[in-house]
Design a binder for these strands. Structure first.
Lengths: 350, 350
DNA sequence: AGCGGGGATGTAAACGTTTGCACAAGGATG
DNA sequence: CATCCTTGTGCAAACGTTTACATCCCCGCT
């Protein structure tokens, strides 16, 4: 592989000149530039970014660390991150982790020297110290942290508000016994959605009932499997809030297969507004969140933080939006958390 | 930020020793190791991977370049790549591109020095020369190339076989006038699926009819919009093969909304077997492909190629599987392309 | 006691860039 | 004509590691 020295020798100039050509320095004569470019093309010279970033201390790369859950929600986040990063000519290096905050810091360490900063979804509140440590090495922006932190900026989805508004909507539709299908334990989104549900119930003077809280894992199979559990509850619930759309759709499908009518016998609501939520039958009442926007905003936040005098401790919340379709009766489309609505371009996920 | 020199000085040893500790050299005394680790922890020393890979010429990172289409198909591919890479302790650096093979080479260039190899989905046949050039710099494995190449290995999905088998199934169900909703122009998967459809028709002695070939873009909105076009065709088709599930579900939903019965009036079939295909109503007959396996296998292929005496020109095809559900009538579940079935672990996507 | 060998550590040269500084040449200025 | 900028280029020192080679020390053998 040709190096900058080969190009320099072949072109009869110094490596400094070649470097200047590649960095668009204005100090190089037109004819020298031409010559260097020509030789570089002939030698098929590709600059080595590792060497470059070793000396400049810039990598033009962002690390991205997400949980190992690949559904449409995550692919949209990544898409948002990728687009926003590309707009600034940054690349992203992606890693997924399972649970552990030890694993998180190992990943951050292994990225040292190859990234300028990190966009991460923290596993749980226990990782706060780890995050603090990492952000001493480079700027970090957290996605949906389940905890308060003064060590870095964060961008969140209004999980709590969304779940609460959705539950309130179910109550307003006249449902009394509302069950919930929770997400995986220790998952921050899952916890916040559960909290919103409970608070909406207690606001309405309804006691939350542990037997109405069923554990799921955010995959549609789990929604399907849970059907039996739902039908076993006595007295039978008249509505179920599945904390994501995949589970809601799995559950709805299983209920219909058991001859239970939706929404007449049992109403179903989901969360996320995945692209197919409007296309199932009955179409799914859910809470729309802007996963693309979440990713994109995190990246923009990172750039603001990294600029001169960046705050580095900004906390933003993206609004969630109640989307009323047919799986609960009703047809109202409503917006919540408008007060948090930003005026930035959302970038337009589907 | 502490460097290896700081640690060495503070511990009263040479940088070589610190380096040896970090690389697990057996030549270091237990007590020295202890000391170095302790100092490193105290100084919060994180080794710089750029410097490391500059001298070792290894990055333990794979580049991944995919089209900018983020649906479940792509997120599964990425998941497969990530898992297989992580199993070898490799990281991935992800980039998406739009169309251009110029963009593809620009990305590959910008990754020089930061990756050991590349997993890429080539934009179109025109990029063959670009691929050849890139693979002179590091090993490349292509996903679903639309062209023959002797410059690198490739792993493909049996798009053609799958589409052909599906079309044959529609014919066997008694459908005569089968329309197709194509994918985006110049998309390799889309082209292969179209080819399979046409060949199945001509095998059956049916002329393919240009007015029955409608352009889509792989998104469910496009399936919905196309509904009107379908209903305008005279005589009306009695089956529609939408070349991915998103479009199929969008179309099905729109047809139902127009009072057209599925499958009685018009049968619908899709492609990909996304996780929700079995949960819509009627459930979708489709072709199952293992996107997770595609990504994982590409990575494993890369590792075989990079080993001593790696072939670097292996071509593999992953089988597609006809999945008969209710959107076309019938209920048979069938496997095709068994002859291509590999005996490797598929890795188990959902 | 002398010698050889091997185990632990240090020295210093790489890896491929960027960039501060020096320098040469030429043109403008006094 | 001497001086001073300006412009283009080269020299060489960094950046933070790894690793071949040298060195030193200690132990066991003859």
């Amino acid at each position: 592989m040709a190096t900058i020295r080969d190009v320099a020798r072949e072109a009869g100039v110094s490596t400094a000149t070649v470097s200047r050509v590649y960095n668009g320095s204005s100090l190089v004569t037109e004819s020298t530039t031409q010559l260097v470019m020509e030789v570089a093309a002939r030698l098929d010279y590709w600059p080595n970014s590792a060497a470059r970033s070793l000396i400049t201390n810039r990598t033009y790369t962002l690390g991205v660390v997400l949980p190992d859950l690949f559904n449409e929600f995550f692919s949209e986040i990544i898409r948002g991150i990728d687009h926003a990063a590309r707009a600034r000519r940054y690349q992203i290096i992606l890693s997924c982790f399972h649970d552990d905050s030890r694993e998180l810091i190992a990943m951050a360490k292994s990225m040292r020297g190859r990234i300028d900063g990190l966009i991460a979804m923290a596993p749980d509140a226990g990782s706060a110290k780890v995050i603090a440590n990492i952000s001493r090495h480079f700027p970090v922006v957290l996605l949906n942290p389940g905890f308060q932190t003064k060590d870095c900026s964060a961008v969140s989805i209004a999980n709590y508000d969304g779940a609460r508004a959705l539950t309130r909507h179910l109550l307003e539709c006249g449902h009394q016994r509302i069950a919930i299908v929770k997400g995986p334990a220790r998952n921050v989104d899952a916890e916040e959605r559960l909290r919103g549900y409970r608070d909406a119930l207690s606001d309405a003077g309804v006691n939350s009932d542990p037997s109405m809280e069923i554990l799921g894992d955010f995959r549609q199979e789990s929604g399907e499997q849970i059907c039996a559990d739902i039908l076993r509850i006595r007295p039978r619930p008249d509505a179920v809030f599945a904390t994501n759309d995949y589970m809601a759709i799995g559950l709805q499908s299983a209920l219909l297969a058991h001859g239970v009518r939706v929404p007449e016998d049992i109403a179903i609501a989901g969360f996320d507004d995945i692209s197919l939520a409007g296309y199932v039958n009955p179409s799914l009442t859910t809470v729309g969140i802007d996963a693309y926007g979440l990713g994109a905003k995190a990246v923009r936040r990172w750039f603001s933080d990294s600029g001169a005098g960046g705050a580095r401790t900004q906390q933003e919340i993206l609004p969630a939006r109640l989307i009323v379709r047919h799986s609960c009766g009703g047809s109202r489309i409503d917006r919540i958390s408008e007060e948090h609505q930003s005026n930035e371009q959302s970038g337009g996920s589907s």
